[in-house]
Simulated scan of single mutants.
Amino acid sequence: MSPPKVLVIQREFVKPGKAGNAHEKTESAFVRAMMAAKWPTHYLGMNSLSGPSRSLFFIGYDSFAAWEKDNMDTQKNATLAAALDRASFEDGELLDRYESSAFVYREEYSLRAPVNIGEMRYMEISQFKIREGHRKDWDALVKMYRDAYEKAVPEAHWAMFESMYGMDNGGVYLLITPMKSASEIDHELASDDAFYASRSAADSKRMAELAAACIESSQSNLFQFDPKMSYPRDMWVKDNPDFWKPKMIATKKQAKPAPQQ
Rank of each mutant, 00 (worst) to 15 (best):
R121G: 12
A36V: 02
A29W: 10
E90N: 00
M123C: 04
R86A: 06
E93W: 02
A208V: 07
S191A: 10
A194W: 10
P16Q: 06
K253I: 00
R11T: 03
P178W: 14
A78T: 13
T177C: 11
A102G: 03
A113Y: 12
E24Y: 08
S200Q: 08
G170S: 01
E90P: 00
F57K: 04
P227S: 15
A190Y: 04
F57R: 08
D193Y: 05
M235D: 13
K136C: 07
I130A: 08
M120E: 00
D234W: 00
P178K: 14
A156H: 00
L111E: 02
F13Y: 04
Q219W: 04
P3I: 03
Y98L: 12
S28R: 04
I185T: 12
P227Q: 15
H42R: 07
H42S: 09
E108G: 03
I125Y: 12
R121M: 13
D85F: 00
S218G: 15
V237D: 09
A78K: 14
N116T: 09
S55Q: 13
E90M: 02
Y173C: 00
D186Q: 15
A33L: 08
P16E: 06
E99G: 06
Q224P: 10
A83F: 01
S220L: 00
D73C: 10
A208N: 13
P227L: 15
F161K: 02
Y109F: 15
V153G: 11
D203G: 10
D226E: 15
L84D: 12
I185R: 05
A19C: 07
T26Y: 02
Q224V: 12
K256N: 05
D226P: 06
Y149I: 13
Y61R: 06
A197P: 03
K38S: 12
P154N: 15
V115C: 10
A22K: 13
E12L: 09
A202P: 09
D139P: 13
E188F: 14
I125Q: 08
R206C: 10
K5H: 01
Y173H: 00
E93G: 04
M72P: 01
F13A: 03
H187C: 01
R11K: 09
K247C: 09
S100M: 10
N169T: 13
D168H: 08
C214Q: 04
D96P: 02
A152E: 03
K180F: 08
D239F: 05
W236V: 09
G17S: 12
P16T: 01
D242E: 15
Y122F: 11
A22H: 07
D70N: 07
P246W: 14
M35N: 06
A19F: 05
L84G: 02
I117R: 03
M144Q: 11
D193P: 01
D96M: 07
P259E: 05
L175M: 07
W244K: 01
R121Q: 11
A83V: 07
R131C: 04
E99T: 11
F225G: 01
R199W: 15
Q10R: 05
S163R: 02
P227W: 14
A212W: 11
A255F: 04
K253D: 11
A152L: 13
T251G: 10
